[in-house]
Design a protein around this nucleic acid. Structure first.
Lengths: 135, 135
DNA sequence: TCTTGACCTCAAGTTGACTTGAATTCGTAG
DNA sequence: CTACGAATTCAAGTCAACTTGAGGTCAAGA
């Protein structure tokens, strides 16, 4: 059999054993069996964990991730929902672009306080609801 | 004076009063005074909060945000550090692009389980340390 | 004047994502 | 065969980022 010992999974993914157990508790991954007490995993778990890591770094909660990819035996993928998530990520990407530009700008701007800088203010003012009173 | 009542800040930023108080507790923002008991803020707080929201959505902790922008009176911005952060965000953007593509792909892919799909696997395998044993 | 609604303080509770600790059990190297 | 290292369970702890609750205070309108 070509199962992976938990130790190998730990080493290759960088997750700690307790994290793997935790993920199993919440049914994000599953182990294929035991050798003695030690969990053994199917090699695919490596990909699953990579996907989980990627999604986490994208700001998704484990619940959301489970919703996107959870349940190995999921018969019919919620394709529409996946596309929706992809679109949300696109929004996120644009937001990050904004933030990156903002940071770049703050780093380059000669204004003493960033709040004094015009284009910095412009970058941020978008997200605000207009006040009823004058600005 | 043109100070903003906390109620207005709440309405215009979407933060709850308790959040504003919390941010003040941890010195992320400051209030300019009180009217009766009610906190009053300088209008700039709106920009600060927009920046905080943006940064949070980018995955930064409040601590990190405080590190980047905290302390109104910060005399010398850590420009190098800001550029570094900007670069990190760029990495994050690329990662998100990957995830978006992955999701798109999974949504479009005819393979019954996403783990069965070749290009899906290829997208993920990058992040894994090579195993000493055969794959 | 009196009521009401939105704020106040302070402590404690919540959620997500794990980690830590104590007591235990394997499988392998010696 | 025995000791060791690494994994096991289960409960409890931790950290960030807030929210909630109890009890209190104000300022504006009927």
């Amino acid at each position: 059999m070509n199962l992976l010992d938990i130790g190998e999974v730990v080493e290759r993914t960088g997750n700690s054993p307790s994290t793997l157990r935790y993920y199993e508790d919440i049914a994000l991954i599953s182990s294929a069996g035991r050798k003695g007490l030690r969990r053994q995993y199917e090699p695919d778990v490596l990909l699953q964990l990579a996907l989980i890591a990627l999604s986490k770094s994208a700001g998704f909660t484990l619940d959301e991730i489970a919703g996107m990819f959870g349940g190995k035996a999921r018969p019919e993928l919620p394709r529409a929902q996946l596309r929706h998530q992809a679109a949300k990520i696109d929004v996120q990407i644009r937001r990050l672009g904004e933030l990156r530009d903002t940071l770049q700008h703050v780093a380059d701007c000669p204004a003493p306080t960033h709040l004094d800088c015009k284009s910095f203010r412009r970058l941020l003012t978008a997200s605000l609801k207009p006040g009823s009173k004058s600005a």
